[in-house]
Design a protein around this nucleic acid. Structure first.
Lengths: 191, 191
DNA sequence: TGCTTCTGAGTCAAGTTGTCTCATAAGATG
DNA sequence: CATCTTATGAGACAACTTGACTCAGAAGCA
């Protein structure tokens, strides 16, 4: 049943998850209840319970379905790679779904006590990737950091989050550029 | 009744709001229900309904009771004033209450459709104060901005928010200093 | 075709929400 | 101190939600 290929199952699951994502996006995590989801998905309430006995799991899978922005596969030269990642991150942070999940990560609902763990994991991954990339840039001489690189995630990503989620305005390329400059002195690698 | 001085009323109201704040801090906005608040405050459920017929209003007043960090009363020289404000903001962002309200601002609960308005107002106030201060610093020559000052709120406050709410680590004075430097070139005013 | 499995509709108990009533006690007024 | 006023807590109440269960029937499979 878990990995069933029965088309009825997949159809139900997809309808349910899609409805759940809509609800999460529109009304927040609290709205992702079995009843709401069933009604929105045009599916029997019992069916939702069958697939996700606990509401926590439903919200979990719903959030997992929203691709959270990562800093994947660092590759030299670091600066243009970082700029691309920041651009992607900024664009994704503009999506209501991603905003909803991000907000949900910040204060776990009562039914989602794992929000802290999920948040920590996300942050650890991002910081790890970013740290690796910046360390390597420092080692190759591409970057001379002007401050503790442990502050880099906050310095770089913080403004993007603030701009997207608090100010709700688009992140400009100029802003990304300026944030990169604030990290330290960049030297174009041997071309 | 609204501005009653009856000690019974004030006693009830304070007990209720205090309990509501605790719940908001501990379990998030969704936990601020009449029932929960009444039980926690040791007060009849009807009493809570009497004072706040709509749950929205209760959550509203609860959030209003949490002092949100502002950038008040800009005064030259701007740089040390800004550093102090950022220190204060960072310290407040470390408080669970402030974090809960901030998170609630990011995604209004269904019962709190005014969250957007509240968020916009808060951001507008902060950006306004910050903009005024930085403009004046630019005019007096204290600051030569290295980027669009409209990005300043995101550049300055974003990292503090990210550090406090996502990374959950303390903001160092060195980080504040570095963020200020990233704004542009500062010139000590005539001493 | 016949067999298996998933589905939707519906029932049910337990709990929550919002509204109302009423005796009581706390506070104001003389 | 006596009396009037008003907020309070307890409880009753219907409407609704939640989670668990049953069952006939439809969809998929052999």
């Amino acid at each position: 049943m878990a990995d069933s290929t029965d088309p009825r199952v997949t159809r139900s699951r997809e309808a349910i998850l899609s409805a759940a994502r809509e609800l999460l996006r529109e009304d927040g995590p609290a709205a992702v209840t079995h009843q709401n989801v069933a009604k929105r998905a045009g599916v029997g309430r019992a069916t939702v319970y069958r697939h996700w006995p606990q509401p926590r799991m439903l919200l979990d899978d719903t959030m997992a379905g929203v691709r959270m922005p990562f800093f994947r596969d660092p590759a030299p030269p670091v600066r243009p790679w970082l700029a691309r990642q920041m651009r992607t991150l900024a664009d994704e942070l503009a999506l209501p779904e991603v905003q909803a999940v991000t907000a949900a990560l910040l204060h776990g609902t009562p039914e989602e006590p794992d929000a802290s763990a999920r948040r920590e994991h996300l942050i650890a991954t991002i910081s790890g990737q970013l740290g690796t990339a910046l360390d390597s840039a420092t080692r190759t001489g591409e970057l001379q950091p002007s401050a503790d690189l442990l502050d880099a995630p906050a310095t770089i990503i913080g403004p993007l989050v603030f701009r997207s989620m608090f100010e709700r305005r688009p992140v400009t390329d100029a802003m990304i550029d300026h944030l990169l400059n604030a990290l330290g002195t960049w030297t174009a690698p041997s071309t």
